[in-house]
Design a protein around this nucleic acid. Structure first.
Length: 599
RNA sequence: GGGGUGGUAGUUCAGCUGGUUAGAACGCCGGCCUGUCACGUCGGAGGUCGCGGGUUCGAGCCCCGUCCACCCCGCCA
């Protein structure tokens, strides 16, 4: 027995007993006569004491201990002498007097100190990830992630779901994100793709009559990375037969409620807040609003028409919009500070930022554009924005896309700066997404979610009977698609799928995908759908993002054991790497880049 | 592909307007130390200033290029 219990688990009831502990040397305090070691393992810290009065030999050996040596110690647990207790650690009332020390393994000096590891650069932490993961904070994250997965798995099991694995080596689909490709040795010139999600397979499972499927599964997308995006990430993926939207939403609400209760002892309000896509855009400027604070966008078009400010009028005449937010208490900003706000808005894509200071105390409104509006209109603007004395009204006038984008980002930026973001967890569903999205570049419609997403019941007939060139009508179609948003992050999304062949056919027609194309791209699913597909739908949750938010991490890299850098490189393993010419030859692959073959 | 921030000792950073021997703290190595818990104390070692080029009498500092990490846009649902 190398240890009797974890370092963090020793208690006062252990006083008097002789036991063994094992772990890493965290800190060493060598007083010459007495040596203290903080011994660390996954469970926590315990102080062990080396005294020549207990064992001359162990005391002698302990001089040579260094940070991160792996040791096993045995001896008597004693109560710490009065006045030497350490209230900062749970085991602070006891300590072990070491009779016998065994060095299980030595450690080279560390590339960076364990105590300052949190401040070390990420590049260094990634290179020596094994050390980074020794840190209690990182271990907490991974332990939490394990617990979160387990609660969701248990919940779904309880609800009758089956966890079914789907292939990792699968077929490339041209829609959506870029695929990671895997060459097939047995089929020269042919490639598998790693799944972007198990979408097609889980629908097949519904056709197969498995009825309730889930999987906690890796997905792969070869796109550029962000703080909340990795090339491989984990989804909690599920699909249900004979279900409509409400069934899915309620299932997930129940799951989140259980999850937050079990893992964080937090009560989540259900049913969740709901916003239609349209309303979310109007009020927050995006489809993943952070509802922990207000600062909502207000429409100013009607008031803008009543002034003579050319920028506003031009925007409105060119199918643009005028929207504003209220910078609470920001009227005290200097001209220079407002200029900085303006350049921030410009960096978000705005041409400019119009502003009006509300100074009711000193008689009204202060702004370069105030002169373009009658006093009464200015008052109405303030009223609509609930702007009081000392507030700063900020306006953007542009095409809807630009205006929403700029103001949604200004809203977030101001929310942070003004410290408006309340702690806690604010969920919302975003529903009634448009079914289709106009692609300017290719001048055709694309499925906003994916081509198997069902239109809303009210819209299905309109779609079936409508003209596929009626852009207006097509743009107005809404989908049975939904996203779940938590604190401004999209943590999942799904839809009810089309199960009527006529609707699916029409969908492909609208998307300008020929029968032939459809066969090539989605053949096996289309085949399957012919043989009695039940109505079905599902959702996929981004596990990494969810865990990130729950543990309060700033990046999903902190909740993934072995993450990759922004260039999708693993600094620890060195992947990706060049491979031997022999391997390429076997795969019938030639590259057009000259590389050195070194291992 | 584009915009931004950073890269100086093992680590985290400072380094002025270009100026002669590049600093601090922590860590590391050695000594002393029987109640510390970020122990203390005395001494010591440690630098391709990311890399390449340029300007200059002189470059860590200025210019050009390039690489790496991070944040964002595009991309991605």
């Amino acid at each position: 027995m190398i240890r009797d219990k974890g370092c963090g688990e020793v208690k006062e009831t252990d006083i008097g007993s002789v036991m063994s502990l094992s772990g890493w040397v965290f800190r060493r305090r060598d007083h010459g006569g007495l040596i203290f070691i903080d011994l660390r393992d996954r469970s926590g810290l315990c102080q062990v004491v080396f005294s020549p009065d207990v064992s001359r030999e162990s005391h002698e050996e302990a001089h040579d201990l260094r940070a991160e040596y792996v040791i096993s110690v045995s001896g008597e647990m004693r109560k710490r002498p009065e006045g030497t207790e350490n209230p900062n650690i749970p085991t602070g009332n006891v300590e072990m007097y070491v009779k016998k020390l065994e060095v299980l393994n030595e450690s080279s000096p560390l590339p960076y100190s364990m105590e300052e590891a949190a401040d070390a650069g990420e590049a260094l932490r990634f290179k020596h990830r094994y050390l980074d993961l020794r840190r209690p904070e990182m271990q907490r994250n991974l332990i939490m992630r394990h617990g979160i997965s387990k609660v969701m798995r248990d919940y779904l099991d309880e609800k009758g779901f089956l966890e079914i694995e789907t292939p990792m080596l699968t077929k490339s689909t041209p829609e959506g994100a870029r695929d990671y490709l895997v060459p097939s040795r047995l089929n020269p010139g042919h490639f598998y793709a790693l799944p972007q999600s198990p979408q097609l397979f889980k629908q097949i499972l519904m056709v197969s009559g498995l009825e309730k499927y889930f999987q906690i599964v890796k997905c792969f997308r070869d796109e550029d990375l962000r703080a909340d995006r990795q090339p491989e990430f984990t989804q909690v993926d599920l699909e249900i037969s004979f279900a409509d939207r409400e069934d899915i939403l309620q299932l997930i609400e129940g799951m989140m409620k259980t999850l937050f209760k079990n893992m964080l002892d937090t009560d989540i309000e259900t049913p969740f807040h709901r916003l239609t896509f349209h309303e979310s855009m109007e009020r927050f400027g995006n489809d993943k609003p952070d509802l922990r604070f207000g600062l909502e966008l207000k429409d100013m078009a009607d008031l803008a028409w009543k002034g003579t400010f050319k920028v506003f009028l031009d925007a409105l005449q060119n199918r643009g919009i005028v929207k504003a937010i209220n910078g609470k208490g920001m009227a005290s900003l200097s001209r220079k500070e407002i200029d900085m706000l303006t350049s921030e808005a410009q960096s978000f894509g705005a041409k400019g930022l119009a502003w009006i200071k509300v100074k009711s105390a000193s008689g009204g409104f202060e702004s370069p554009i105030a002169k373009f509006f009658p006093e009464e209109i200015l008052r109405k603007m303030a009223e609509r924005l609930e702007a009081e004395d000392g507030d700063l009204m900020l306006f953007v006038a542009d095409k809807p896309k630009v205006t929403y984008d700029v103001l949604s980002r200004m809203r977030l930026s101001l929310g942070e700066r003004l410290n408006l973001i309340k702690p806690g967890f604010k969920f919302t569903w975003i529903t009634d997404f448009p079914l289709l999205e106009w692609d300017e570049e290719e001048s055709r419609f694309q499925a906003m979610h994916h081509p198997f997403t069902s239109p809303m019941n009210e819209d299905a007939e309109k779609m079936l009977t409508g003209d596929i060139n009626d852009k207006e009508m097509l743009s107005s179609l809404r989908a049975k698609a939904y996203d779940i948003v938590l604190n401004g992050y999209e943590i999942g999304g799904g839809s009810i799928r089309i199960h009527r062949q006529a609707v699916q056919k029409k969908m492909f027609e609208i998307l300008d995908i020929s029968d032939e194309d459809a066969r090539v791209k989605f053949g096996f699913l289309l085949d399957a759908l012919q043989y009695g597909a039940p109505p079905h739908g599902g959702i996929a949750l981004g596990l990494d993002r969810l865990v990130m938010i729950m543990v309060g991490a700033a990046s999903i890299r902190d909740v993934i054991a072995f993450p990759k850098t922004q260039k999708a490189v693993c600094l620890m393993s060195g992947a990706p790497s060049v491979v031997e010419p022999k391997q390429l030859k076997e795969l019938h692959i030639k590259t057009d880049v000259q590389l050195d073959f070194k291992t």
